[in-house]
Nucleic acid binder design. Sequence first.
DNA 1: ATGGTTTTGTTATGTTATAACATCGCAAAC
DNA 2: GTTTGCGATGTTATAACATAACAAAACCAT
Lengths: 174, 174
Amino acid sequence: MTEDAVVSPFRPVRHEHDACIDDALDAADALCAKQGVRLTTLRRRVLELVWGSHGPMGAYDILDRLREERMRDEKKGAAPPTVYRALDFLLSNGLIHRIESLNAYVGCGAPSDGHAGQFLICGDCGSVGELDDPDITKMIASKAEAMGFAVTHQTIEATGLCPECARRGAKNEN
Amino acid sequence: MTEDAVVSPFRPVRHEHDACIDDALDAADALCAKQGVRLTTLRRRVLELVWGSHGPMGAYDILDRLREERMRDEKKGAAPPTVYRALDFLLSNGLIHRIESLNAYVGCGAPSDGHAGQFLICGDCGSVGELDDPDITKMIASKAEAMGFAVTHQTIEATGLCPECARRGAKNEN
DNA sequence: ATGGTTTTGTTATGTTATAACATCGCAAAC
DNA sequence: GTTTGCGATGTTATAACATAACAAAACCAT
């Protein structure tokens, strides 16, 4: 009821978003348990906020949300390090990705395998799809290797038009 | 004679750096003339500074250099917008690239064709190599297209170890 | 309960980037 | 040759993103 007027999407297939968040959080719980790290209340809440957003979420967006909540509970607000620490934790455990070209964060659709993400970012609606194609990863690694360069991490972000926005755009050109 | 104590490299092949800068500036002059845009003194100087650096250069690094120069000339300093505007011009004319994962800028080794760069960033020495491999570009575009996504710009940045640093690292492990 | 470790809070500050408006300088139109 | 228009630059202020450093609290292993 807060700000869902425009249903964004392009998370690959449309889905029940609430259920999707629950699944992601359950997966995160399990993964952290397995890794022996602590998905604390704060960290879990930040992860939930990131998943709950329709698009990539900036650190200060998250901060604002936390502040709102705490104010409602008559507690003191939060400060940037609180958010950045939670984000660092989630990043280093593969539960979220950082989108460099947006300075923003998205939930990782397939945690557990220690992959970097490959993102398709719609310039129109801001939604993000995750690709994670091993062919791309391999091709880049091997082309780099041919130059004597040993890749440890890849940042792959493509900007463009998502299917929905392309459709909408085409319609408006009659 | 200014600060070349450590010769960085991994710009693909080692080269006479000064001559390389001159070439880049000449190419930039020509390209701007052809495009009917103005490579003003300021813009040209910023481009020169970017090329003159051994690695990617941050906007505020450039700003500091400009300030030094102007102070030496007993003029007033410069402010951020001065640099960012020059960078915007150079970016939109394909004369430099922005490296998202570093918030920094490098000279474009092959302007004129309107490509995005593909970068190999050494985590050890900070040097950057440009790849620009059309196979990679095409593969990403086609994989995205298969999902109904129309790519307009790609950001491809790989972090790792450059040939020189790998050699040096191996040597230190005896 | 105690002591060590991890997490979170808190304050301050660093770094990167842009908005908004003023001024300058050149070149086309008169 | 002045006026006028426009692109470039100057200037001030502030927005947006991120981290350092130290204090307090929560956790949990013994």
